[in-house]
Nucleic acid binder design. Sequence first.
DNA 1: AGTACGCCCTGGCCGC
DNA 2: TGCGGCCAGGGCGTAC
Length: 273
Amino acid sequence: MPELPEVETIRRNLTRAITGKRISRLTVHQPAVVKRQITAAALAKQTRGQTIGAVKRRGKALLLLLDSGDVLVFRLGMTGQMLWSQPRRPVRRDKHTHVIMDFGGGERLLFRDSRRFGEVYLTGRDNLENVLGMGAEPLLKSFTPDVLRRIIESSMKIKPLLMDQKRIAGIGNIYADEILFEAGIHPCVPAQRIRGKKIHRLHQSIRSILREAIACQGDTVSDYRTAFGESGSYQCNHRVYQRQGEPCLRCGATIERMRLGGRSSHYCPQCQK
DNA sequence: AGTACGCCCTGGCCGC
DNA sequence: TGCGGCCAGGGCGTAC
């Protein structure tokens, strides 16, 4: 499930692959993935002939900046993939391939998403932040412990708060669990009760876990692949996620699993208070 | 304001 | 072997 580290990996791949290249044609095979009052036909028309100025990321959203000033936004949902295809290593289109961007010379970028929770749309650059509506970008310098302190002034439980994209952008279920383990905080703790040194530890954990996962090229629990079709390896570094019933690597207690806000949460009852 | 829940969707897995 | 049922959950809408 692509969270910030997975999307960042794809962003880095695509920066190499498509920056400066021209979209000769964009084809939509599954119109349902095109969202936000733009039709598939309009999307195809308004991207045709455009050059990719830069590939950016905001939270879990992948952003292709076009010379026209428009931004092509991809959200990968649970199972979305962006796959780079070239004549030497072609990627075949299948029934889950919803959008194909052709760059000429047999180079193409495929958007695949078996569960179709993902989406694509086009928006003006000036309006981008409004449309995305996302909170703090956790790896930027501007994300300081003091910024985090203000964000967590809430009666919400810390885990759903960490996953709230309007507050902090890019953290999903897996990394929320791993971050809270690293920080020694129970997922159900009211956020506002985290104070002082614990805020610094949480801040540090958010950044170190996300950076570690980027260094692993992301987490391939199931469908995620890099743009070059490779698996990530962060799943080998899980300390709590999907380790229920196994011993805590820090204290040996048994890792537990609970439902929280409709999502599964994994934690060490001993280390996380 | 926060929380719970259903919905969208499909593949994988389990039990029978 | 096959099939129903359940699970995974990002993000959104709705109800409380």
